[in-house]
Amino acid sequence: MLTTIHGNKPLQLAAGLGIGFLFGFLLQKGNVTEYDVIVGQLLFQDFTVIKIMVTAMVTGMIGVHLLRDLGLAQLHPKPGSLGMTLVGGLIFGVGFAVLGYCPGTIAAAVAQGKLDALIGGLAGILIGAGLYAHAFPWVSRVMLPKGDFGPLTFPELFKVNHWRVIVPLAVVLVALLAVLEWAGP
């Protein structure tokens, strides 16, 4: 049944829209459409972003792996390498701090009336993504293959059942939230 749904293109476009609607609704309710909140996180003054992300990680890692064990979901881990993930991630970090939004939260921020996001940030992201498409032949030849590890997951790396990673990791992440709640601003 699920594969029939997955193969129905108009239905999938509608599903993407609906899932995005809920995601955007939540981002706005979480206040991460605010430059002040995102930059506050990067300055370690406001921990809203980390609290949301860590709660989503714990919920999602338990939920998605449970669904996978039940045969209702498949994993799609992205490939990576040091030259791709680390270098690209650091470049992203520069933009994250200077712009004060990320690609998901900027879409939500624009909808709420943030004009720096709409006129400055959105144009910048489109230019940056377009420049990358032009740099791609060089980047993919020279940089992306460095330190390649492919679509590896931690259970594969440690050669253990996924729950042996999820349970201790979830405990550590929930403890982190407890510490933030107890000590944080």
Partner: peptide, 14 residues
């Protein structure tokens, strides 16, 4: 400028 870095870096990192 921040957006340019963000878009470039996001696609680089995949």
């Amino acid at each position: 400028i921040g957006g340019i870095f963000l878009g470039f870096g996001a696609r680089w990192a995949g």
